[in-house]
Write a protein that binds this DNA or RNA. Structure first.
Lengths: 331, 331
DNA sequence: TTGAAAGCGCTAACAC
DNA sequence: GTGTTAGCGCTTTCAA
């Protein structure tokens, strides 16, 4: 066991209270006393037991980061961003996935009232009623990532999926594409539905009729993306461009095009969403929407840490992280 | 603040001690008492304050997962594996990267004696003296991932990089390739040096002279991989195959080959290491070494949790996670 | 400016 | 089998 405040107090010949105050930079402590205490703390290699501190204060410097799953770049970058900000502020991120078999709501309840975390960042692609009620009766600060941005009861950070998708499709139209198909994500996924709405909005704004047959769900999956692209390419009314709801499905399209002998972008233009790492190395370079995912994580952590530190509740923020169109050679 | 053990005790009309015992399944408690306590616990929505428990017991059900950085599939899968096992055992993973500017050693010291974690999993691609001394005088259980496997002072889990690389190169030789080049990782990275050794060992075993000019360091970087591949392909003594120390560099090679007009595998065969997600979707499918990274994380977490739970120290394990050769169409 | 002491919620030794 | 109580290391009143 490491050295305790008592031993440090004895060494510095002051009371434990003074040690505590000195180490917490209480202005009431005389500078020379403070100095002596700190000197001995260094000397004896003293580290306050954070557990005891958190326990006593009823808060925690640990942030619960609850993700629907842990895979792929998106989550990694969120974790990375959260980690970076946590480090700056002396917080630690506790990462938990919802483990599919249990609901996300359960995971959150598990954390609650246990004292382990001082607040959480929740990434909920689907905002169930369970989850909503938990957020509403929350006893800990919560920041939502990419949740429904209209939600009024907590802070949230995310991308404007709809506007970004709309911008991308508009960009394709401006480049001269007339028949733009869309491979959407899962119907249940909030991001996916927003992106599809953006696609529809762009067409409507440009006076292009929306053809339902030109929208197919690929579940964000690379293999499904390939499959659907194959269907599009072999249909009689072949599209001249495909906007995929994520880059993974776009990669699937590349594969389909290659094996079917279609050249990108001459025979079929492809656009994605996310700008994952490999996209910049694909030949031709994928046209896509870049989202600074790490910034989402950072912003969420910043928000949460502020929220944990403050006592009174100020109004909730909804922060939109901007996205950029990467005009690659695939369109 | 959530309900405490005291209030629960009052409700169930027993002492706090009985509540504690009942909830911890102490066999001394009468079944009916246990039942009543649990009933009230459910009713009142009681969750024990884990912080208080950990504090009191001087342990923690939180595992510190210290990574050199957080990006790419490898780390994600480690986190994923650790998370899965943690969940099973009621533990939580606390993820921290070493944040480059501070050393990994510092991060570990930060955790120590603070009570926050009950042990850690450390992924150290380089085992510095700092780190070694910390491991040696450790006051908390540690499991090393992919560290130097010869290290004797703690548990470790990892891949046999050398044997796997050797197997891959031998495989290439058996396929008929005569002039196999190697794009290695960073000289400082333990994985990289082991893979290079495996490459050399395979050549030697097959009676092929090792040509130093055929080994160049690409730092595990996709762009450097492309660059070096370009150099190899334009040299007068062009290799007929390139074994890259990771898939990212292999992707770089694909790019170089495509732009220089070389066909894979006819003009140049490419092999990688890691079998990252996109490798299976590359055209042609990349020949590579598959490592079950998630299993590494799982195994490490398993080991650590056992270590935390047990009181006396048994001998340290070194677990080697097997790897497989994926015989793709790029060779 | 400093010290003494209470107490956070829980577990475990001891008493009954 | 159950209750009483000390105490984990720290912060924070309250006194001095």
């Amino acid at each position: 066991m490491a050295i305790t405040i008592k031993e440090l107090a004895a060494a510095a010949k002051v009371s434990v209270a003074t040690v505590s105050r000195a180490l917490n930079d209480d202005p009431k402590v005389r500078p020379e006393t403070k100095k002596r205490v700190k000197h001995f703390a260094d000397l004896l290699d003293y580290n306050p037991n954070i557990l005891a501190r958190n326990f006593k204060k009823g808060t925690s410097n640990i942030i619960g980061l609850i993700l629907p799953d842990i895979y792929g770049e998106f989550f990694t970058e969120i974790i990375r961003g959260v980690d970076a900000v946590c480090y700056e502020h002396g917080y630690y991120p506790l990462v938990a996935s919802s483990h599919s078999e249990r609901s996300m709501a359960e995971t959150m309840i598990n954390f609650m009232g246990q004292g382990i975390v001082g607040g959480y960042i929740v990434m909920a692609p689907v905002l169930s009623d369970d989850l909503k009620s938990i957020i509403q009766k929350k006893n800990l600060p919560i920041v939502l990532i990419n949740g429904r941005m209209t939600y009024e009861d907590c802070d949230s950070v995310g991308v404007d999926n709809q506007a970004s998708a709309k911008a991308m499709v508009t960009h394709l139209i401006e480049k001269g594409y007339k028949r733009i198909a869309h491979i959407s994500g899962s119907k249940k996924n909030n991001d996916a539905t927003r992106r599809e709405k953006g696609y529809v909005a762009a067409l409507e704004e440009q006076g292009i009729a929306v053809d339902k047959k030109m929208i197919k769900s690929g579940d964000f999956d690379i293999v499904k993306g390939e499959q659907i692209c194959r269907e599009f390419l072999s249909s009689k009314n072949k599209p001249d461009a495909i906007f995929c709801a994520n880059d993974m499905m776009a990669i699937g399209c590349y594969k389909a095009a290659a094996t079917m002998g279609f050249k990108i972008p001459e025979d079929i233009a492809i656009a994605g969403f996310d700008d994952i790492f490999v996209s910049q190395f694909m030949t031709p370079r994928l046209t896509t929407v870049r989202v600074d995912t790490e910034l989402i994580g950072k912003t969420a952590a910043d928000l949460l840490i502020k929220r944990i530190a403050e006592s009174q509740i100020s109004s909730f923020s909804k922060i939109v992280i901007p996205s950029t169109i990467i005009d690659g050679e695939s369109s």
